[in-house]
Simulated assay, not measured.
Amino acid sequence: MSPGTVLLGALLVGIGGGAGSALRWWLRDLGMREAARRYRNGDVRVKPWLTFFVNVLASFLLGLIVARLGSSAAGAAELGYLVLAAGFCGGLSTLSTAALDVVELMRRAGFAIAVSYLLLSVGTSMAMLWLGVVIAS
């Protein structure tokens, strides 16, 4: 790979990642504001599920993208993959926040709830990735 190609790839991943991260922030902010409006202590109850939602959404979109463009695409498809899969879906999903949610759930709600949330998050995300691949194929 030439230095120009690597630089272009990094730029495309950065652009897509920035857009995905901005969408994640906006969805979470919207959800937190709505929870605060509707429920007392809504942020505590809703926060992990907002992370769950964006991770599941990102997994589904990644399945669609990989099925359409392939994970080892070349040419224009590779550029699309970099922007959409590595960038946008990578920025939209968030393992670190999910991990923090599990730790907070363990502290507040106990081990069983935290592990259940973790398993549900991973299992649902995997299922949605598979569904995206099936739908797009």
Results as ranks from 00 to 15, higher is better:
23 L>S: 08
56 V>S: 14
77 A>Y: 08
10 A>Y: 02
68 R>Q: 12
6 V>N: 03
21 S>V: 04
57 L>E: 01
43 D>K: 09
79 L>K: 14
58 A>Y: 07
75 G>V: 09
71 S>R: 14
50 L>D: 06
33 R>F: 10
68 R>W: 12
39 Y>W: 14
26 W>S: 14
26 W>L: 15
16 G>C: 07
45 R>A: 14
5 T>G: 09
51 T>S: 12
13 V>K: 08
49 W>T: 11
80 G>P: 06
30 L>H: 09
90 G>W: 02
28 R>P: 00
76 A>Y: 04
89 C>F: 09
39 Y>E: 01
78 E>W: 08
67 A>S: 07
60 F>G: 08
26 W>F: 15
72 S>L: 04
55 N>F: 12
79 L>Y: 04
67 A>I: 04
87 G>N: 11
90 G>H: 05
42 G>S: 08
17 G>T: 10
44 V>N: 00
40 R>F: 06
63 G>A: 05
61 L>Q: 03
55 N>L: 13
76 A>W: 12
64 L>V: 03
87 G>P: 15
31 G>H: 08
47 K>P: 00
32 M>R: 12
38 R>F: 06
57 L>R: 02
76 A>I: 14
44 V>E: 03
8 L>P: 01
46 V>P: 00
38 R>M: 07
11 L>R: 09
85 A>P: 14
67 A>K: 00
9 G>A: 10
53 F>R: 02
56 V>K: 09
16 G>D: 00
25 W>S: 05
79 L>A: 04
90 G>Q: 10
18 G>N: 14
68 R>Y: 03
83 V>W: 04
73 A>T: 09
50 L>K: 07
57 L>F: 10
87 G>D: 11
5 T>A: 14
7 L>H: 01
59 S>M: 12
65 I>T: 04
38 R>W: 07
66 V>G: 03
19 A>F: 15
42 G>A: 10
26 W>K: 12
76 A>C: 00
83 V>K: 02
68 R>L: 12
85 A>M: 13
36 A>I: 05
70 G>I: 02
12 L>M: 13
28 R>I: 11
85 A>W: 09
49 W>Q: 12
53 F>D: 00
76 A>E: 08
74 A>I: 13
63 G>T: 10
68 R>P: 05
6 V>K: 09
50 L>V: 12
1 M>Y: 06
63 G>C: 08
32 M>Y: 02
33 R>D: 15
49 W>K: 07
32 M>L: 15
3 P>L: 10
82 L>K: 07
25 W>V: 13
61 L>F: 05
40 R>I: 05
4 G>D: 08
30 L>Q: 08
22 A>P: 11
21 S>W: 03
4 G>W: 08
22 A>V: 15
42 G>C: 12
11 L>T: 15
42 G>K: 07
12 L>K: 03
13 V>Y: 07
57 L>S: 11
11 L>N: 04
63 G>W: 10
75 G>S: 07
8 L>N: 00
47 K>W: 01
10 A>R: 03
22 A>T: 14
89 C>N: 12
28 R>N: 11
66 V>I: 14
17 G>C: 10
83 V>P: 05
53 F>P: 04
66 V>P: 08
14 G>A: 02
74 A>W: 04
37 R>I: 00
